[in-house]
């Protein structure tokens, strides 16, 4: 049943680009790219509870690597992005291991500031504030900036990222992450290595963001610093919290929100209103629905099921307990 449903969904998703016009195909690719990076942040923040404000920097790292290594074959680029992101994740994680809460958030924010500073000041390499145009990546007889091909390329990685995140939930590593978030004392008492777990979480999260950035550069064809500064990092945070920490479907929902809603605002010509809504939504969800929309949906479904069961119980013959 589940397998059949998955096949239907995959077929639908795979055929979508042939049914939509290229603008929407491109937008869906963007949603998937942001979903990959959001799933990454969900690992380090949603599951391991480490508030990182550097996710957009890892995203940017992948994007700029793509822009600077266009002459390399795609496979080599990918490996380079993964390796660099892993190192970058470790570099951010290791000095911050003794920190939590505000201090962690601040230091990761500083890493982000430093990244933007470096982009601005290495103008000859990065194009400074002007940004860089990224030539399309050739795929077979087409390229990554063809909406349909770009979509397929991104879809492949988005599915892989989703499966990875689901698999993590099924492992002891996934349980370690939750233990580090909820109770370091409990984690230590069962013998979990806090340091190794946190570093692994940061590295994984950076890899997801780096790969997403790499795809972004090749699909969008242009990179510039504002896409990777503090505000996008906060948007990734919004995506995780809105969808629901620790839930893969939540990350997708969150990514759809941070890509589609700004589009909607710009269609009605009010793009500067999006950050206001973004801030408001972040506050409301954090205060009223700390488990995020997915958690809210699960609870509602559970409530409906319970009501339904109670009604059936009442209408059927009463049996002694």
């Amino acid at each position: 049943m589940r397998i059949a449903a998955s096949i239907v969904v995959m077929a639908f998703v795979g055929l979508l680009p042939f049914a939509l016009d290229s603008y929407w195909v491109f937008t869906l690719s963007e949603v998937m790219i942001y979903a990959i990076a959001t799933i990454g942040l969900d690992i380090v923040f949603g599951r391991a509870g480490q508030l990182s404000l550097a996710q957009a920097s890892f995203f940017g790292l992948g994007a700029y690597l793509a822009a600077l290594t266009t002459t390399l074959p795609a496979g080599l680029q990918f490996l380079l992005v993964v390796a660099t992101a892993m190192i970058a994740g470790a570099v951010v994680a290791i000095p911050t291991l003794r920190l939590s809460g505000l201090r962690l958030a601040l230091v990761t924010l500083l890493f982000g500031e430093l990244f933007i500073w470096a982009l601005d000041h290495l103008g000859s390499l990065t194009g400074g504030t002007q940004g860089l145009v990224v030539p399309a990546l050739a795929i077979g007889d087409s390229n990554s900036q063809d909406p349909t091909y770009g979509y397929m390329l991104v879809l492949f990685f988005a599915v892989a990222a989703t499966l990875t995140a689901v698999q993590i939930s099924r492992t002891q590593f996934g349980r370690r992450l939750l233990a580090v978030r909820d109770s370091e004392v409990a984690a230590r008492s069962v013998g979990i290595g806090l340091v190794r777990t946190k570093v692994a979480a940061f590295m994984l999260s950076a890899i997801f963001a780096g790969v997403a950035g790499w795809l972004y550069a090749h699909v969008v064809g242009f990179v510039a610093p504002p896409t990777f500064d503090l505000f996008p990092s906060v948007y990734f945070l919004i995506a995780v919290i809105l969808g629901g920490a620790g839930r893969v479907a939540g990350s997708w929902l969150g990514a759809a929100y941070i890509v589609l809603i700004p589009q909607a605002f710009s269609i009605i010509g009010q793009s500067n209103l999006f950050p206001i809504l973004g801030g408001g939504v972040l506050i409301l969800v954090a205060l009223l629905l700390p488990g995020g929309l997915m958690d809210g949906a699960t609870r509602t479904a559970g409530w409906i099921r319970a009501r339904y069961a109670a009604m059936r119980q009442m209408s059927s013959n009463r049996r002694p307990a």
Binding site: L178, A179, S183, A186, S189, V190
Partner: peptide, 13 residues
């Protein structure tokens, strides 16, 4: 292995 005076569990899990 040990337990604690106050229960240390992942309450939401």
């Amino acid at each position: 292995v040990r337990s604690f005076q106050t229960v240390r569990l992942l309450e939401d899990e």
